[in-house]
Computed example of a mutant assay.
Amino acid sequence: MNTIAPTDLDRVVGFTIPSRHARGRVARLGPVLDQILSAHAYPPVIEKLLAEALTLTALLGATLKGAQGQMTLQAQAPGAIVNLLVCDYKDGELRGYVQFDAVRLSQLGKNPTLNALCAKGYLAVTFDQATTKERYQGIVPLDARSIGAAAEQYFLQSEQIPSLIRLGTHRDRQGKLIAGGIFLQHLPEGEVGRERLHVRLDHPEWQHVEALATTMGADELADAGIPLENLVWRLFNEEPEVRLLSGTELSRGCRCDTSYISQVLAKFPAEERAAMADEDGVISVDCAFCSTKFPLKLTDFVSQPL
């Protein structure tokens, strides 16, 4: 298989294995991840959690058909150490942030489980299809050891599709965090209307693909020197046919800007906007995704006087 570059980052590549009724995607984040993380002063544990969540978001978001569709991953756990994590994907653009209790986090070890961070929380996965205007959402408890395992439970519960998700991170020589992941699904066999394979007592085709995928370690998934196509080749080179799909380039894509925020604030009554402003008549709006502050003057809304 042809290699593409000595450093393969910020891409998602899809593939199918027809004889095994399986499809998958591999992704790796580098500079995009660094841009998102650099907007915040997250401790290492939170950086790793967000890196895995963003990689998962890229893997799932890339399954959307058509432009302008959006996929959102949201973990909520009121009262937990991590009470909110939000990531979304739109046309290859990623963004995400985490809210957490720094004091309580410092009391945990270096590698806490997802359940320890988000006790009694839930994970919501939402797909907004732009072409059909349809929305699909599934919610599962955050009682797994990792966000990848929680997502597997989502697919099993919401879509009744056996899935495998593996995520990994490591730091390069410059200390930058690199994240990689693989996402596999078993498809219904044959024509529409046939039973889902997972309801059978035995489905060796999926078990074979799943077993191969589990041999891929975090060090390989997050190794920028291994092209994504080569990861697929390493896993499935003995299969009769593996079809590679076109890749998707990833970028950081916070969609906040002054115009959009002004439009949102304009929908509030004038007296409420006045209550939001400081003594100089300025409303300061912070974007949680990129940590950018947007100051807007009350005089900008003169069309709606008090």
Rank of each mutant, 00 (worst) to 15 (best):
P112Y: 11
A62N: 14
G109A: 12
D280Y: 04
A119Q: 14
A275F: 02
S259Q: 11
L184S: 01
D286M: 12
E134T: 12
S106E: 15
F268P: 00
R95P: 01
L265D: 02
G193L: 10
D257E: 04
Q74P: 00
V86C: 02
P227N: 05
K110Q: 12
S163T: 15
K267F: 05
I139Q: 09
L73F: 15
G138D: 04
A144I: 02
Q70M: 10
V282E: 01
S262K: 15
T132V: 05
T3W: 08
I165K: 07
K176W: 08
A5E: 06
K267G: 07
L177Q: 08
T131K: 07
R20D: 12
F294C: 06
S259Y: 09
I283Y: 02
W233M: 09
S262L: 04
S246F: 01
I178Q: 13
R135V: 11
P204H: 14
S106C: 10
L156I: 11
A218P: 08
C290T: 00
V264F: 04
P31D: 14
G121M: 03
L235R: 01
A116W: 06
V103N: 14
L117N: 13
E134F: 08
E279C: 11
G92W: 05
P141M: 15
R28D: 06
R243M: 11
N115S: 15
L231I: 11
A39K: 11
S303C: 07
D280L: 03
V192G: 08
V103H: 15
Q153N: 13
V192H: 09
G148W: 05
D219C: 02
L298Y: 08
R104C: 06
M216N: 06
C118T: 06
A116P: 03
F155P: 03
G92M: 08
G69A: 08
V82Q: 02
G121Q: 04
V26E: 06
D202N: 09
E189D: 12
A80C: 10
R234W: 01
E238T: 13
V242R: 11
F15V: 04
V282Y: 02
P31V: 08
Q137A: 12
A224L: 07
F294N: 07
A277E: 12
P31I: 08
T215E: 08
V12W: 00
N2E: 15
L56T: 01
T55P: 00
L142S: 10
V26K: 06
G138S: 11
L184E: 00
P141E: 15
Q99M: 12
R243D: 12
H203Y: 10
A53Q: 13
Q137M: 13
V125M: 09
V282R: 00
D172L: 01
Q107G: 09
R252N: 00
G69K: 09
P31C: 09
D280M: 03
A5P: 00
N83P: 00
R20N: 10
L212S: 04
D88C: 06
R255C: 07
H21C: 05
V264H: 07
D280H: 09
F155C: 03
A151W: 02
I283R: 00
G92R: 07
S106K: 15
K297W: 10
P31E: 12
Y42R: 09
R104L: 13
T7G: 07
V285P: 05
A58Y: 02
R20A: 15
H21R: 08
D300W: 10
T214D: 12
L244T: 05
L212M: 09
L244K: 07
L84T: 05
A27P: 01
